[in-house]
Design a protein around this nucleic acid. Structure first.
Lengths: 192, 192, 192, 192
DNA sequence: AATGAATGAGGGTTCATTCAT
DNA sequence: TATGAATGAACCCTCATTCAT
């Protein structure tokens, strides 16, 4: 029973991702989402108290899905360079597979809600920390030169975002760009 | 007369920057903008046929202001590294001075309008080209190693954006980060 | 079984008195009533076909309770003055004990339903008749002068209502007011 | 200009009296009121921020109209009995001429809004005070015996209300009832 | 028989846009 | 030309009612 309820809630969340990502928060109508989820308009309100909260939870859902996959793809790798390469590759793949969620996340920022803004800042921060500690590992293992890990992490993530965005809007083969960019970055931080 | 009209139109554009950047497109009300511009609600429609078009023209106005300043700050510099450093510094300064416009540009993306989206892609493309040709200059002058100029430009601009965004939302001294990042980037693309 | 059903129906009626009297017809939600009655929302519809009918039957239930008590408190008294005094006192007591029902009856009038309106008119009419015949008794026994019994009954009931309403909303000792009013009324209709 | 605005506001108030008195607060739709006032739905919101406030102001408007007329009909009369008779007669006439307002006031009580409730209590209180002071005058002039003025005022107003209500819902000639009732009341409070 | 998840009609309110002044 | 009062389409949300379990 509770399982079924949970499933219904997830149906609505997934439908809302489709609609919100296509229409944006303000142009999306609750009815659209209801239709997309195959439920009645009122049913949404059984699970979410308002459009704003639905949007919020949908964002959280999407971000959590991203984070979960990040962890799944990174954990277990030892070599720092390898981790960063893997992270880059994963991001490109994620953009491809979850283009809707990705566009959502990229294009519906602060607007709507302070809380979402904060959630994003937090997530970004956590990822920056994680990358920074990978870089610290690289430095202590002698792979990387003594750059500021936080700054290097910021630079790295900026590049990843750029490539990911390119993946999203161009139809080109961004793997190639990714390799080139990683080359520049690794050159930038490697020993001699 | 036409001069006065032109001035009035610019008043409205500037007012709309203030209001749109604070409230976002959907939460900004035409009345707010009218009040901010010191004109009647109906007057806006003498100059702009709709809210969407006003937003569009406002965006174009803001972007053109940015581009004009970019050109003013870059032209005349010969050394490639110097150009890139200068561009980075300029961006940080611009974010500070025109925080409203900057936030506007960062946080009101594709939504609203396909045309704006395209304008942004074009502007980005032009700036990428410009940076790429600077990098080509650096390569031929022997300063930079043989990396793909377009990719390097992308990487560079990604970093610039990241630092600029940090400037916008943090109150920290981002000049420091900027220097560190430039160091990484220059290491990444320089000859040995 | 039928007994149990009847009990269940009465539970709902009593719960609805609580909720309707607190919230009013339009602000009361069927769910509130269900919760107050300790049954499921759907169960109410097993016993009452609609919110309106529930309200109607609840009103009838409340009014019948009132009438039953009126009769219980009046029957057996012989002296006309005594009957009227007793009726007054009873009403004040009833307001105190069944404040909810009383407020209900006072503040949810014609609105909602023509039928309820009519029921109220009828009840009022019957009570007026009863009081009038008491007054006729008083006249023929020589206690009261030859006033129009119907008019006197109207006047008397108006006073009773006023004192009852005062009891409901003030926390004062209305018995005192009641005595004074009865004095005026009895002076008004008594011989010499 | 402001005059025209004021007129428009009054149009809406008057239309809302018609609609609210016919339909009740909850069944009245803003659109109905708009149509009745001959304006667009949005126009109402130019003058009143919400349905509740419109209702409130409408009530105040109606009550003020009543009070103004009460004063107009009472002032200048010296004899206490005459004042009370005149007040009774006026109320009957007012019910006839402004049946809508009257029904409104009688049948839309506390519900909707605490503030309205208070306004009503206040108005009733003020009128009771006024009648009480008239009765005090009657006592000191020797017309009335030493009854409690406040209680007598309550009794009197209760009778007035009853006759007024009868006027509203019956089509009978209530003047007759009024005269009989006044007779009872005056008997009740007069010196021997 | 009892339930409560699902429904969707209905209505209050907002605000871009119009147009008479 | 400039205005802002008037407009009504659009949309979120509520809640009485239904019906599968």
């Amino acid at each position: 029973m509770a399982v079924k309820e949970e499933a219904r809630k997830e149906d609505i969340l997934k439908a809302s991702i489709r609609v919100f990502s296509k229409e944006g928060f303000y142009n999306a109508r609750m009815e659209d989402i209801a239709v997309a989820a195959g439920v009645g308009k009122g049913t949404i309100y059984e699970y979410f108290p308002s459009k704003k909260v639905l949007f919020q939870e949908m964002m959280r859902y999407a971000v959590e899905m991203y984070i979960a996959e990040v962890e799944r793809h990174i954990t277990g790798i030892k070599d720092a360079k390898e981790v960063l390469s893997s992270f880059m590759r994963f991001n490109i793949d994620f953009m491809r597979e979850h283009a809707e969620i990705a566009k959502m996340v990229i294009s519906q920022p602060n607007e709507v809600n302070e809380e979402i803004m904060e959630m994003f800042m937090n997530v970004r921060h956590r990822i920056e920390e994680a990358i920074a500690s990978v870089i610290i590992g690289g430095i202590s293992s002698g792979s990387f030169r003594k750059i500021k890990p936080r700054i290097a992490a910021m630079a790295f993530l900026a590049m990843v975002s750029r490539v990911a965005a390119a993946t999203l809007y161009n139809c080109e083969h961004e793997e190639y760009n990714a390799v080139e960019m990683l080359d520049i970055f690794f050159h930038g931080i490697s020993m001699v």
